[in-house]
Design a binder for these strands. Sequence first.
DNA 1: ATGAGCGTAATAGCAAACTAGAACACTAGT
DNA 2: ACTAGTGTTCTAGTTTGCTATTACGCTCAT
Lengths: 126, 126
Amino acid sequence: MEFDDKVPIYYQIEQYIDRQIIVGDLAPGDQIPAVRQLALTLTVNVNTIQRALAELIRQGILVSQRGKGNFVTTDTAVLAAMKKRVINAELAETYEHLMGLGMTPAEMLAALEAYIQERKDRDAHD
Amino acid sequence: MEFDDKVPIYYQIEQYIDRQIIVGDLAPGDQIPAVRQLALTLTVNVNTIQRALAELIRQGILVSQRGKGNFVTTDTAVLAAMKKRVINAELAETYEHLMGLGMTPAEMLAALEAYIQERKDRDAHD
DNA sequence: ATGAGCGTAATAGCAAACTAGAACACTAGT
DNA sequence: ACTAGTGTTCTAGTTTGCTATTACGCTCAT
């Protein structure tokens, strides 16, 4: 996996797992890969994996069972709240940033629409 | 200034100055505050300021004149390119993240619109 | 009971980001 | 000349993130 070296790897792994749950690659109750396997897959140290998981466990998103594995919680309320939080944080960050660039909300929508269109064009003739 | 401790301060300062230029708080040719003054204002060490400025100077966005000060370049082409780059990076990041959350472009626009509306409501009854 | 597979913890070492503080170099006004 | 205000550089030390390595604890199938 490619990491942004401007932000801690353990934090990016947290987000990576959050996303896998949101998208449905990991369902409630699913066992996630073993820490040593994750370390191999993501090419980072076990300690770094552990640090990321510790935070997800603290949040109740994952449940750890010593000797068995780590599992996605079956508490769908927790998962729904997480999803909402993640999406909202993303939109809030974009909003704040673009506002800091002097854009009005209408301009933000227009800019995003233009970006999507431009991207569609680019992807088309590739 | 409040910094996000997940990303290097020097990098956030770079973005901060980029934005001041984009918004117009700093115009082409303007002298920016002295490094020691910036250090006080942003409650950060002079070396950290220097590190941020070094990158902006390298990019040609700022011009340094020893003994006199640091100035915003008068090369408007450089500034225009910077503005475009910053805005595009912001939109690209949002797009990638939301795509990673399984959203389609149409859903992204809808989500942003909903967020803006929600935010308008919230700000209204505050 | 033994072993394979899992989570957990602890140590030691390295590099990056940041801080504090001092010193140096140039410019311009007096 | 001197001084105040600027940028520039360097050294030393702290903290944080990450790595490598080892060891320990629990579970389950055999």
